[in-house]
Amino acid sequence: MITLTLLKHWQPRFSLSTIATLVIGTALLAGAIHIVVILAVPYLAKADGWSRLAPHSGENQFAELPAGGSIEDGVPGLDPLFVNGACRLNLGDAPAGITVDARDRFWSVALYDPQGTIVFSLNDRTAAQGRLDMIVVNSEQNQRLRDNPTVELELTIVVESPGDELIAILRLFAPTAATRADAQRILTQSECLPAPSVIPPPESG
């Protein structure tokens, strides 16, 4: 009743069509804001996976990621029964080589890009006898590799990355104190290095 009276009272100033336009306009604008916010979050978020991983990642080697840690500086979503390592790759100058040698346990490797996408991942079943030999290249290096195939790459997994910047994550199953120590040893022995020799130098002239 009150609403009706109010509407009647307002009628001289706001016609029903004006109100309808306002309501629809509000809904449309709200929808547009919703979409813009959702699309903008990945670019604005300061605590995304990449910026949480990067400070803990090793250069030219795998560094162990902190287990647990505080909400501010930890890396959430890691399995507490695993030893996790991360290594930063930059393919700008040269491809990167990753070598892991770990038998008798589950382990996996993932390549993570700044957009938060896992570009490539595998587990120890794919690696021959627990040994992984992987070369990560960008598209231009991959093209050169295809033009000049080298013999030494036959037993190597070649992965093409869409971008130059990556973080390699190595996860090793380590449920007990003894296997943890073992996994930490494997982590330090695993290689994650620039591999300029894989690609023949660009032809001069």
């Binding site: 979050v41 978020a45 996976g49 996996s108 993932a110 595998l122 794919t126 994550i169 996860r171």
Partner: peptide, 12 residues
């Protein structure tokens, strides 16, 4: 991006 969680890859 907001949570900062690193998901498991499809091969993992």
């Amino acid at each position: 991006a907001r949570v900062g969680e690193i998901p498991l890859g499809s091969g993992e």
